Amino acid sequence: MEESDKIEIRVIGRMGNDPLSPENFDIREIKSLFDVVETLLYPNQKNSRAPITYSLESGSVRNIFRTTRQSAAAFIAIVSLVQQSGSLEGLELPTARAFQEIQKSAIRNNFTYEFGTPYNDVPSLTISKETTYHINENLWADAEFYFYGVLVNAGGKDKTNIHLQTKDNGLLTIATEKEFLQGLEENVLYKHFMVRAVGRQNILSGELDTSSLQLLELSTFDPTYNEKYLDNLIKKASPKWADIVDADKWVSEIRGING
């Protein structure tokens, strides 16, 4: 069994006229911390993550989380990096959003959050109403994407979406209209599809905001390699290239690229 370690998020503030304590720390705030810690520890593998256990202790409010030693060390490394840089830039989007939620809570509730370990009195990161940890929205722009994968789920009571299992991007949740799913005449589950979607992308890193995806088009495709089909396409196209001496140069000119 992998060795475990502890991380701590201490919350300092007041609830009404009383200092914050385990007796008056609302479960809504505890739930928010659960979501934040899970995202910080396992931003891209929540379905296969190691167990995270929790205890609530006095000292304003000390939220103690126990998980694997490796994940705890990575947690401290990330919060220390944020403290040193004073910015959320360069973080994966789920991680940056988790810190931004803490920043919003600090401003909304006049709380101070101290990230660290139970073994060290000096926090690795402090977020309060005086700090400014926000995502730079100017770095994100709308873009169009093509995804290929197996459709493993579709529907939803309030928010309608499809779930596409892809090789390069994992499981994607893509919002769609209820009327679109109602209009499908055949079972689409566990079949291969090409999905055209619109969403947001970081203009510097190229990172995809997977929470922003909206379906534009859904069409079936065959993922198997068909050598005969490819050969036929080459034969059909070859006569059109017969008079072109330098194919690479011709393509560059068509694309407007100067050699």
Rank of each mutant, 00 (worst) to 15 (best):
F25V: 01
K235A: 11
A72N: 02
I203W: 06
L91T: 07
N44Y: 15
Q214I: 10
N136P: 04
R200T: 13
F145V: 06
D35Y: 08
Q165N: 13
V122R: 03
L204R: 12
T117C: 01
A96I: 02
V188N: 14
A143S: 10
Q45A: 12
A106Y: 02
Y54V: 10
I76W: 00
A154P: 05
S4H: 06
I174P: 03
R10K: 08
I203N: 12
D35F: 05
K191E: 15
E38H: 10
P51N: 02
T132S: 15
T220L: 13
A141F: 09
E101H: 10
Q70L: 11
L171G: 05
I203K: 14
V122I: 06
I244W: 01
N47Y: 08
K235G: 07
P123N: 03
L151M: 07
T131G: 01
A72V: 07
Q201Y: 04
N138F: 11
N232Y: 10
R28Q: 12
V245P: 06
K157L: 08
S211R: 14
G16D: 12
D142L: 13
T160D: 04
S124K: 07
S58N: 08
R66W: 01
S85Y: 09
G86R: 03
K31P: 00
S105L: 07
E227N: 13
N47R: 13
D121T: 09
P43I: 07
V79E: 05
L184S: 11
I174V: 12
I203D: 09
E57P: 01
S105M: 11
V61F: 00
G86P: 11
D18Y: 14
L208Y: 03
V122N: 02
A74F: 09
K104D: 13
S252L: 13
S21I: 04
D168P: 08
A143F: 05
H163N: 15
Y119N: 03
D168F: 07
K191I: 13
E253A: 11
T67F: 00
G256E: 04
R14Y: 06
S32C: 03
I135S: 05
S55A: 10
N47F: 09
E89A: 12
P239Q: 03
L151W: 02
Y148N: 09
Y225I: 11
N153E: 15
Q201C: 09
E38Y: 09
F180P: 08
G90N: 05
S58E: 07
V61M: 01
N258E: 13
V122D: 04
E92Q: 15
G155W: 04
G156Q: 07
S238A: 15
K159W: 03
K191H: 15
R66C: 01
H134I: 14
G259H: 15
D168C: 06
N136R: 12
S4E: 06
K228R: 11
Y190P: 05
